[in-house]
Write a protein that binds this DNA or RNA. Structure first.
Lengths: 237, 237
DNA sequence: CCAAAAGTGTTAAACCTACACCCATGT
DNA sequence: ACATGGGTGTAGGTTTAACACTTTTGG
């Protein structure tokens, strides 16, 4: 579907007033990053709309795949953002004007939207972002150094950041941020980054192993200075 | 808004293809009950639609208040149900025909709906249910003895039941199911009912008190057989 | 005074914490 | 050999579990 089609056909193809947004989180060089797209001079979350003939879940996976190139991306529902005047009118207007496109006030794009926000944890190395119809660029931003963003999108990212902190306490899901095979030191550092605090190395290691979620691979990794760590993989059910 | 208005104006007033449903849960005579409404020969969850000029949250509270008569009802988001063919066409058709109403296939009521399901914990005694536009009756059903229900509404109730089990482990929220002042034996029985298992009385009591969420009232309650229990109240922040 | 209900104690096991210690490896 | 990074051990405190004990009250 190209640009023109999208604008013209959107109203017929998609469920109106409903969008799906994704906070796509990766881990790179000890920092949590979030994938954003640029439209005009501000950034926004990867997102999309639900086809009238498609389930919300399907739309979510489809949108994720389109933007990340991943076959089977992880994702989890985050929250509904449904403010009474949640519109992107100003942002779209600016974009259309700047690009010499014909701006119409009453396009479906300018309607009030309820969005179903999700977060997705991805392997930074495996993720090959692809920009969408309107997007000028993509970039990974440190969760603590977000750029100017559309509407409430920054708030959505911060909600995801906090939710991740909570979820990590109850579920084993952070391995989604690492390659299939990873070491305990890597997982340890990741947890410290997410929680923003130091975690005892010894205790962390034992807790993770005791959780039974991981299986140790007899191989060791090639590294440089110290002892070589074991690798781990998520235990298949 | 009366019946006719609702059908005719609905399309203009409400966000299309989006509904809000509520699993309203009460606790009565040692059993968890769920408030359902009757339309035709099946039952459904209290629910409604979001005004175009209203936030989702506002709609949720409004719908809850309308059906329960409670001023400040508790509620928590449950899940999105967004199947690709989630329609009530058959159910509405049957209802309209049986009531000699003119049925139109392509009314907004028969559209595909994405619903935002919530659960609400209420004080059974304080809740005075009110039926809505189409409803013939309301009733409280034991969560384990649900009647025939519309579409996926039974699934939604079961999702709420399971979610409640999980949430109870992490948050102090079950007091919403009891009167403002309650005893530990009451809270104990409630937890046992929700979890479906026996909990050590001694440990439960100490855990609850240690949580610091409750304050003991020096009063005792009048009862019949044994010792009189303390009453507790949620500690104000 | 006895049974029932509610509250409190007791003990052992399990778990968490904060380190200390030991092993492997590159320089 | 030694600094670095990784893995494991241990002593202490805290929390949990299971059940025993005590207090209060109605009959």
């Amino acid at each position: 579907m190209d640009f023109q089609e999208f604008i013209e056909q959107g109203e017929k193809l998609f469920l109106p007033n409903l969008s799906v947004d994704m906070v796509i989180i990766g881990f790179h060089e000890g920092e949590l990053k979030c994938l954003l797209l640029k439209i005009g001079d501000k950034w926004l979350l990867p997102g999309g709309y639900v086809f009238r003939t498609e389930s919300v879940e399907n739309a979510t996976v489809r949108i994720l795949r389109e933007r990340t190139g991943l076959k089977d991306p992880h994702f989890k529902f985050l929250s509904v953002f449904g403010g009474e005047d949640r519109k992107f009118t100003e942002e779209w207007k600016q974009f259309f004007v700047e690009n010499n496109l014909p701006f119409k006030e009453n396009t479906w794009l300018n309607d009030r939207f309820v969005t179903l926000a999700h977060y997705s944890l991805v392997d930074f190395e495996k993720t090959k972002p692809v920009i969408g119809n309107f997007d000028e660029a993509f970039a990974w931003f440190n969760l603590d150094e977000l750029p100017k963003m559309w509407m409430d999108h920054k708030e959505i990212v911060l909600t995801a950041k906090n939710r991740l902190k909570e979820d990590i306490q109850h579920e084993q899901l952070t391995y989604n941020l690492l390659p299939k095979e990873f070491t305990m030191p890597q997982l340890h550092g990741l947890h410290q980054t997410i929680l923003g605090e130091k975690l005892d190395r010894s205790r962390f290691q034992k807790k993770m192993i005791a959780s039974g979620a991981f299986e140790r691979l007899p191989k060791l990794q090639k590294d440089s200075p110290g002892r070589k760590p074991f690798q781990y993989r998520v235990k298949k059910a």
